[in-house]
Write a protein that binds this DNA or RNA. Structure first.
Length: 304
DNA sequence: AACTATTCCTGTGTGC
DNA sequence: TGCACACAGGAATAGT
């Protein structure tokens, strides 16, 4: 499923395919796709029609297309189309006349009549919405034109690939919490962009058990898990980059270029690539956690 | 205020 | 063959 690297692949694809183009017709084919746009599908479509797209942005697993009025790409955007892909969402660019996908939720055409943009989402956890841009709380001290973020995500933390991410502040926040490290890694108010897969991969690389109490972590251990998260996500991003040549902005995380590189996730009963011990699977937060029993021993005092 | 359980959704795979 | 159920899981929300 799409996590930070897959979303970044999509963002780059959109950058090359839709930047500078002006929207024409917006069709919402399933209301659930715009459920977070509380004013409704018609309002969503109205706000998105006749707008020019400028450089796409991303924070964590959210991405957004800042919009100006039609034909005014030099203006400072104050609104954006915000997207979250959920578990199965895809943003596809292609021939406007091609067949409609079974799970097509939103279709956007452009005034030039070239490739359309489609939001396709089988499991409907993803969504699109129109929103205002507000000053970024994380960079409010600095000047610069990129300093706005969508209002609904102004509360989330920076992701670990952003300059704005503060490793030491993250460490101090963990020490104040009374929870487990994996729960903390999935908490977007502490760190954004890390999902179930990359959390398990980062913990495996850092040799930390998912139930390790955050208040007992050392600065070195936190550095290790952050470095591991950055390495594994960067590696996935590099491999995902191969899809740019395609006409389609490919977000299909499951077909994954990166599947074969995973060390922990999905490898139940397979040998740990470091020590050969069988990888175990635990159920936690209603989802799977994979770890090596030898490299990542369960702490005596576990926190879930 | 910090923490945790619940909820949304549908296609696939498995066991009986 | 058909049915029931587990599973995949991000993040808002409600509840403690």
């Amino acid at each position: 499923m799409p996590e930070l690297p897959e979303v970044e692949v999509v963002r780059r694809g959109l950058e090359s395919w839709v930047t500078g183009r002006t929207t024409d017709v917006v069709e919402v084919l399933h209301p659930r796709a715009v459920r977070r746009h509380t004013a409704g599908a018609d309002d969503f479509a109205g706000l998105l029609t006749g707008r020019t797209v400028v450089a796409p942005r991303r924070r964590g697993k959210y991405m957004w297309l800042p919009l100006t009025e039609a034909g005014r790409p030099e203006d400072r955007p104050v609104e954006a189309l915000l997207a979250h892909l959920g578990m199965s969402g895809q943003l596809l660019v292609g021939d406007p006349g091609r067949e409609r996908e079974k799970h097509l939720r939103v279709r956007i055409t452009f005034t030039d009549g070239e490739h359309d943009l489609r939001f396709v989402d089988q499991r409907t956890f993803g969504h699109l919405m129109m929103t205002d841009l507000v000053p970024d709380p994380l960079t409010s001290g600095s000047l610069g034109p990129g300093d706005l973020v969508p209002e609904p995500i102004a509360h989330i933390a920076a992701d670990p690939l952003e300059d704005a991410f503060d490793d030491d502040a993250f460490f101090r926040a963990l020490r104040r919490r009374r929870t487990g490290i994996k729960r903390a890694l999935l908490d977007q108010s502490l760190i954004s962009g890390v999902g179930n897969i990359y959390a398990d991969e980062a913990l495996w690389r850092a040799k930390l058990h998912w139930a390790r109490p955050t208040e007992t972590l050392t600065r070195a251990e936190v550095s290790r898990v952050l470095t591991a998260a950055r390495e594994v996500m960067s590696a996935a991003l590099n491999v995902g980059g191969t899809s740019f040549d395609s006409l389609y902005v490919n977000v299909n995380g499951e077909s994954g270029y990166f599947d074969r590189s995973l060390d922990a996730y999905g490898r139940r009963d397979e040998p740990c690539r470091r020590c050969g011990t069988a990888i175990r699977r635990d159920v936690f937060m209603n989802r799977s956690s994979y770890s090596c029993p030898a490299c990542q021993p369960r702490p005596r005092r576990a926190r879930y």
